[in-house]
């Protein structure tokens, strides 16, 4: 993208007072791109050196991992197991939302319930994800329900806390306005309450997602019947380290794509009424 911009830019006429600034900005962008490329090259070098040092059985070369990744994608396994993992992650979110949102609503709405849930939810939110992964394995053993439960346990406290925060952020003056115009409680909930908490819920989902898919894969490694984590375990048992790394890298790349593109895009669309988001979209 940077290249295209630079390539497409016409040579600035000398009269343009901003030409100097533009040139400086362009030069800085080039330098940054160069540094990024250098960083990748360094990483590649360290890896190559590492596989020479340890031997490619222990640490396969980047090329071997790439070949393995191509094979995984071509065999069609990746799509099946990747979608299984993504589905389990979102199912976990569903459970987390079904439990966390009502708790958050009570916490935001009533001081009484806030006092009741507050410490429990806070503690639940600080427990390390690995603990939830182990707990889910103990509860469900080898099953698809383990990863779902792990994701739900990790996410629910965040969702509860953010929904509570959202409810407390509701503009009372909009509620009074609605009442003065004779709006019903259902209308007020739909038009005032929900739109206020949506951004908070989205923030919670984005925050959770980054942790959730790692927990999901981890739980699969130990107790999954399908999914990316399950494949990593299988390849590990076959001692195919190249395939283990290939699965890992593919998973990371595609989850980052979901995180950066799908979630960020739908959030921007839902919140398009916000002045700053709108102006950047125009």
């Amino acid at each position: 993208m940077t290249d295209q911009l630079v390539g497409a830019a016409p040579v600035a006429p000398p009269a343009d007072p901003e030409a100097g600034a533009k040139r400086t900005a362009r030069r800085r962008r080039w330098r940054l791109t160069g540094l990024v490329i250098l960083g990748w090259l360094a990483l590649y070098g360290v890896w190559e050196y590492g596989s020479w040092w340890f031997g490619s059985r222990l640490l396969p070369t980047p090329y071997e991992v790439l070949l393995s990744a191509v094979e995984i994608v071509e065999s069609g396994n990746f799509l099946t197991d990747f979608s299984a993992s993504v589905l389990k992650t979102f199912a976990g979110f569903g459970v987390a939302a079904a439990v966390g949102a009502p708790i958050g609503y009570l916490m935001g709405r009533y001081n009484y319930w806030r006092a009741f849930f507050h410490d429990g939810v806070t503690i639940a939110g600080t427990i390390p994800a690995i603990v939830y992964a182990v707990m889910s394995l103990i509860v469900f053993g080898l099953s698809n329900l383990g990863p779902i439960l792990a994701v739900a346990l990790v996410s629910a406290p965040y969702i509860a806390l953010n929904v509570a925060e959202g409810i407390r952020g509701v503009d009372k003056s909009l509620v009074t306005m609605s009442e003065a115009f004779g709006r019903t409680p259902q209308q007020i909930r739909k038009e005032v309450l929900i739109p206020t908490i949506v951004p908070y819920v989205f923030a919670a989902i984005r925050m959770c997602f980054a942790v959730a898919w790692k927990v999901e894969a981890l739980t699969e490694v130990f107790g999954g019947r399908n999914g990316v984590g399950f494949q990593i375990r299988t390849e590990y048992q076959l001692y195919d380290i190249a395939a283990v790394l290939a699965w890992m890298f593919l998973f990371i790349v595609f989850m980052l794509i979901i995180e950066r593109l799908v979630l960020a895009k739908s959030e921007a669309r839902l919140l398009s009424w916000r002045p700053q988001e709108r102006s950047s979209a125009l």
């Binding site: 003056s173 009074t176 609605s178 115009f181 004779g182 709006r183 209308q187 038009e191 009424w273 916000r274």
Partner: peptide, 23 residues
């Protein structure tokens, strides 16, 4: 009844026309 407040009190997530229709 209609009510005009000191501040506009419009729903920020709804267009002007949708705000008109809300009440």
């Amino acid at each position: 009844m209609g009510y005009v407040f000191q501040d506009p009190r419009l729903l920020p997530w709804r267009s002007v026309m949708k705000n008109m229709m809300y009440v």
